[in-house]
Design a protein around this nucleic acid. Structure first.
Lengths: 142, 142
DNA sequence: CTAAATGTTCTAGCTGCTAGAGGTTCAAGT
DNA sequence: ACTTGAACCTCTAGCAGCTAGAACATTTAG
């Protein structure tokens, strides 16, 4: 039986995060000692590892909830898990495209910076000049 | 003189966001009508455009605050603005590297998904298998 | 002069944690 | 058996950067 601290160490998760996962129902309520402390077994180690691994791949918690659900029901179709993963891949590729565009413009503005005073700073000039903007809608959340 | 709504439309900003920027001191407190509604002039349009453009390039609000400050003082050195932009470029490149790694692993797990039931789903299997993990520390925030 | 559109403030919510206060329990050493 | 100190407990609030809603006031066009 593991304490929450050792569970955290085993899975690379902060204690607070484990409790947070419990709070939002991603992790089950574990058994407790007489004094009220949480104790975990192997199943919880596996589940938390699964969650952390999925997080490292950028899956949002809601997607992980679905994946865990699928994982708990071995008789359901694999297609759902597959489509969740494909959705995530799309997200990643979208973000990459955005970042690529950002990098290009950032490089351009830095490249052109000559190094005088801010009156004729290219960086600021680019930001001021609305004409060469990226497409309107949010490149922001990239 | 523009209402907050028209300012928003001109700059592609939601009304609430304009007020939020005012609240955190990025936008100045504007003049008001007798009835208490905000009215904006050209200077505010420029300033908000600057902010939005910088946001589209992914600059965090604190960096934008510095950039605005530099922009307001034309006699200060351009180096500061330049280094803020370089910092941002580094961030972007870091995130791109992370996303590249994620994409690789996501592609791998999708590629191997055969399409039976979840009992032998490759997607879930990869997530369960802790051994082939990415390097521990946060690939998450990518 | 009325009605609709837009404005106002205030509060709470989103994601995914993280940190702190203030208190309790556990395990090891003496 | 007793003490100490690390690790646990709950609860609340905070981070970024908005976004949405309630409940009300103002503005403007017909």
């Amino acid at each position: 039986m593991l304490t929450i601290g050792s569970l955290g160490k085993k899975t690379g998760t902060k204690v607070q995060t484990v409790r947070y996962y419990e709070q939002i129902g991603l992790m089950p309520e574990p058994g407790r000692t007489e004094g009220g402390q949480r104790r975990y077994g192997d199943a919880e180690v596996d589940r938390l590892s699964f969650i952390r691994h999925a997080r490292q791949l950028g899956f949002p918690l809601e997607a992980i909830r679905e994946l865990l659900d699928l994982s708990d029901n071995p008789d359901r179709s694999c297609h759902e898990a597959d489509s969740i993963a494909r959705r995530q891949l799309k997200q990643v590729e979208l973000r990459m495209d955005r970042l690529k565009a950002l990098r290009t413009e950032l490089k351009r503005m830095i490249h052109e910076c000559s190094g005088g005073n801010t009156a004729d700073c290219k960086v600021l000039e680019v930001l001021r000049d609305h004409s060469e903007c990226l497409t309107d809608h949010d490149a922001i959340g990239a």
